[in-house]
Write a protein that binds this DNA or RNA. Sequence first.
DNA 1: ATCTAAGCGAGACGGTACGTCACGTCTTGGG
DNA 2: CCCAAGACGTGACGTACCGTCTCGCTTAGAT
Lengths: 195, 195, 195, 195
Amino acid sequence: MAETKKRGRPRSAKAEAAILKAARELLDEAGPARLTIEAVATRARVGKPTIYRYWANARELAMAALMARMPERAGMKTSQSAIADLRTHVRGLIARFATTRGRQSALMLATAERDSEMFKAFRNQVVMTGREEGRAILLRAIAAGEVNVDMPLETLLDLVYGPIFFRLLTVHAPLTQDFADEIVATLVEGVSTRA
Amino acid sequence: MAETKKRGRPRSAKAEAAILKAARELLDEAGPARLTIEAVATRARVGKPTIYRYWANARELAMAALMARMPERAGMKTSQSAIADLRTHVRGLIARFATTRGRQSALMLATAERDSEMFKAFRNQVVMTGREEGRAILLRAIAAGEVNVDMPLETLLDLVYGPIFFRLLTVHAPLTQDFADEIVATLVEGVSTRA
Amino acid sequence: MAETKKRGRPRSAKAEAAILKAARELLDEAGPARLTIEAVATRARVGKPTIYRYWANARELAMAALMARMPERAGMKTSQSAIADLRTHVRGLIARFATTRGRQSALMLATAERDSEMFKAFRNQVVMTGREEGRAILLRAIAAGEVNVDMPLETLLDLVYGPIFFRLLTVHAPLTQDFADEIVATLVEGVSTRA
Amino acid sequence: MAETKKRGRPRSAKAEAAILKAARELLDEAGPARLTIEAVATRARVGKPTIYRYWANARELAMAALMARMPERAGMKTSQSAIADLRTHVRGLIARFATTRGRQSALMLATAERDSEMFKAFRNQVVMTGREEGRAILLRAIAAGEVNVDMPLETLLDLVYGPIFFRLLTVHAPLTQDFADEIVATLVEGVSTRA
DNA sequence: ATCTAAGCGAGACGGTACGTCACGTCTTGGG
DNA sequence: CCCAAGACGTGACGTACCGTCTCGCTTAGAT
């Protein structure tokens, strides 16, 4: 209830929107490394101090712009097989990240200061949003008895998402839809010949 | 005929060593983002042009310094179970990367210009060296009939390495030795209840 | 009809006083160059626009603060010798200006926009107040036959005040009471050997 | 003889000249208050750090530009009357300072940081150069028995130069050639009626 | 034993962007 | 309609590094 009385001129939503728009455009045109505060300020017809009032530096602004940019997650349709749902989910994930925007997001993640608030927000919103959906699917699969996981669910989720980001970063092999299927198949079946 | 005649003063091995030493120290003290050519030149008591004679920019120098820094891979001992060997391998990998140096390497990988020669060299030497060993282990496992892989081996390798780098980048969960075991167990057994 | 109806909240005398007080404090602490509107507003707990309602810019405010600060001129006592009175007057002048405040005033004079109203007011109040007294003394001396001036009185007054401000600005020699005596003696006697 | 060996690339005389030229042009066009480092850098096609390598701030640069600008003092011709020479000297001084440049110089003097090296250099070169000549003339007058000064020569010199700068600063009366004559006449003859 | 080309350290060069400060104006809600 | 607070666009500040370019000095193979 300790609400702070807002005094003085309120922040301009217009300015913030113009900044984010300019940032997004520059990301598209030149990538995150070229996103400078000066360029954003000029393009958004905004003063530099205004930008610094909202974000601490160019990287945080870039993250904010990328977050605002991530496509809305379409509500997932549920089929009878949770594993089929997982496959669809991973395919969607790859489709999302195998874009300039997706690559830039992964890159931001790697570059950002590990312990800033922005980093956590970015990680949660960009990387982990999909994760919640993935977690739901896996829980459904466990409930349905399709799957048996005797370890932290986090580990399994990392086994799903890790390979995608790995290819994104190392570019040693293409990030295709087939890769989604291969990931899911391996995780489900395992490679053991014991069975 | 094709030999290039070497005229003039040869390059100084001492200078190169001093540069790399300074670069390594700065990496340790301040991280890759703070590794500037000026700082390296000052610390190594070397002229800036000398540095540029060897490396194109600060990131390449950082990669070179990190590469020179990666611990020599100990010759892998082979046990009777290829899967046990894989587990040992993954554990070693995690031990190597769960260090400041390892984290910095992953970070460099993410930041580097995707199509430079240096990027490829760095990727191959830092990330993919272990991979060759992993590939050998898997091939051994297949030959021994311990394992059955009906997809590109690359995919399976990405399923091993991807989760490690993912945690390195997102820091949402700790990178422990247990995680190595969980990765291997899942990949081997799968999570299906069908069996 | 012609009368302007006073509508709305009247100006706050308290605000003006607080502003001038803050300005004076900042002048003492940091000098006229550091007297910024922002600092004054913060210290006086006053909005910046309120300051601008009274003064056009920081220099004018500084001048206003300095004017409010000049010590009241004590009523001059008249002796029998107008020349002795002049000496006393010049000594008093030097005493007044050989202070931080005096130096700042001279500096303001030099910095101010030459044709602003404030400049004229400042010049008249700070520099020329003394001058009126000096003029009166000289007129008395002429009337008493102690002195004979066959040129504009202004010139003679400049010969009295000029050297003081000159030393204030160039600081090449100290501004002492002896200097007052030397000025008056030279002006009265001249340096010619003809006599 | 402890000469310092000059290492590294020597400073570019061309750059320095271009900077001073640009500074002079800006002084002429907009005055000392508008002389910004940015504008000078742009006009001189020179990097800002290069300017800062030579001068500590805009005011010092302005002083340097004004110094480079002061007209060479013509070798003074000597007549039979030292007092006539003094009159000629003071007239020349007024002619020099009753210009935009002269006024700017006086202003710089007033604005500069009192204890910087640049301030002293500027004072000596701009204000005090003429002073040496004036001192020589006075010494000649004393030697010739034309004049009798029983006080520090500095005081007399201040009585000559002070009034000029005073009018320059206060602009309460015009700075004419007649003023020169009036100054000299008063100093020589004095205003006393005793004689 | 020179000559000469390349590497060396140092450091100045033209630039770009940084993050900050203060400007003078504008926009709130409250008195 | 004034007040405080404070955000706004603007413009300059002084600094950090960039990557390039002289300097004068090694250094060592070719002459």
